[in-house]
């Protein structure tokens, strides 16, 4: 679907406004998020790798 120029500008403005809201929240979360413990990243990476494999399976099935 090709977008008209004004729609492109409107989408860019909407996403730009989203950035204004996300930036302070991200800064706050970066400062206040607890540090990962032993095995924490592994516990996240395993399901995410499974999601990637599942999406690849869906792509091959279509």
């Amino acid at each position: 679907m090709e977008m008209s120029l004004w729609m492109k500008i409107a989408w860019a403005l909407a996403l730009g406004a989203m950035l204004v809201f996300l930036l302070p929240r991200a800064r706050h979360m970066l400062k206040n998020s607890p540090k990962a413990g032993a095995g924490d990243w592994q516990a996240v990476l395993i399901p995410l790798v499974l999601v990637i494999l599942f999406v690849l399976l869906l792509i091959m099935a279509v």
């Binding site: 996300l22 929240r25 991200a26 979360m29 970066l30 400062k31 206040n32 998020s33 607890p34 540090k35 990962a36 413990g37 924490d40 516990a43 996240v44």
Partner: peptide, 12 residues
């Protein structure tokens, strides 16, 4: 599990 350690990374 507590996945709150991911918060900052997800927002970035």
């Amino acid at each position: 599990r507590d996945f709150s350690f991911m918060g900052g990374m997800l927002m970035v």
